[in-house]
Computed example of a mutant assay.
Amino acid sequence: MGELGSFFAGLLAEGGDAATGRRYHDSWNVVQDRYGVLPEGIEYSTLAATSRGNQLRPEFADAAFSLWLETGDELYRQRNQKHFAQMRRTSKVRHGYPILTDVTTNPVGRGDFCPGYWWSEQLKYYWLTFGDARRFDYGDHYLSTEGNLLKGARK
């Protein structure tokens, strides 16, 4: 399984199947609990990391945000808070957040660049989850898979 697939939990909820979305997100949360930060790939039957890096992808945070919007369950905000705390703990350096090369080591291995989607997507999901953004309509909205606001902006 690849970390990119963790977004599917939110898509299930948006499609009306929040119960299946929760179970799928639960499975990725188990991985997060094991490693602290999601590895890029896992062997699902053993949860062994098959790709040990982390590219600071937004899919887990996206799914938690979508599940929270659809269900109102604070569990997903708590998961995003934990996810952000782990990102800060493992990735934060003086001037940004570099990718991780190995989440299975302590301390984690760090790369030397930060992808643009960290700033344009990942932080947006955190901000919308925790910021009580007055310009975002939490009840009537539509975001693209890249976190672009397509509907729901307020003046």
Rank of each mutant, 00 (worst) to 15 (best):
Q78P: 07
A133R: 12
G109T: 04
R22M: 10
T129R: 04
T50N: 09
Y35S: 02
Y24V: 07
F136T: 04
R52Q: 15
T50H: 11
L75F: 02
G116Y: 05
G10Q: 10
V103S: 05
A9F: 04
D73V: 10
T20L: 14
A133G: 06
S66F: 12
P58V: 09
L123F: 13
W28Q: 08
A85E: 10
G116H: 06
N148G: 04
W118T: 03
G16L: 01
K155Q: 14
P115G: 02
Y44L: 11
Y138F: 10
V37F: 08
Y117E: 01
G96A: 02
Q122R: 09
R135I: 00
T104A: 08
S6K: 01
E121K: 08
D33H: 07
D102C: 04
P98G: 04
Q86G: 02
W127H: 04
S6V: 00
L67H: 13
R52E: 13
W68L: 11
T71A: 14
Y117M: 05
D132F: 02
L69Y: 09
Y126L: 07
G147T: 01
Q122N: 14
L47Y: 11
A61T: 14
W68K: 00
D112P: 00
V31G: 08
T46P: 13
V93I: 11
E121A: 15
A49P: 15
Y97S: 11
V108M: 12
K151Q: 12
F113L: 05
T20S: 15
R154Y: 05
S120T: 12
R34W: 01
F7S: 08
D112N: 01
L69M: 15
G36N: 04
L56K: 05
E70S: 09
F7P: 10
L38P: 12
Y126M: 07
P115W: 01
Y142E: 15
R135N: 05
R134H: 00
S51N: 11
S51T: 11
L12F: 11
P39H: 03
F65C: 01
V108T: 11
A64G: 13
S6I: 00
G116K: 04
F65S: 15
R34V: 06
A48I: 07
S45R: 08
D33V: 03
Y35P: 02
G152R: 02
L11V: 11
S51K: 06
K151G: 08
K92F: 06
G72E: 09
G10M: 13
L12G: 09
E59F: 13
E70Y: 12
A48C: 13
S45E: 15
Y125C: 06
L143G: 01
E59R: 07
L4H: 14
N106W: 07
L56M: 03
F65T: 00
L143Q: 02
A133E: 14
Y44S: 12
D132T: 14
A64S: 06
R79G: 05
L12D: 13
S6W: 01
R89L: 01
G5H: 14
I42N: 08
T129C: 01
W68Y: 10
E70T: 13
E70I: 15
E121G: 11
Q86A: 07
R110Q: 10
G53S: 09
S27M: 02
D73F: 05
Y142T: 09
E146C: 09
G131T: 00
K124L: 05
N148W: 04
K92Q: 15
Y97V: 14
N106V: 00
A63S: 07
L128E: 03
R22V: 05
W127P: 00
A13W: 09
S91Q: 11
L150R: 06
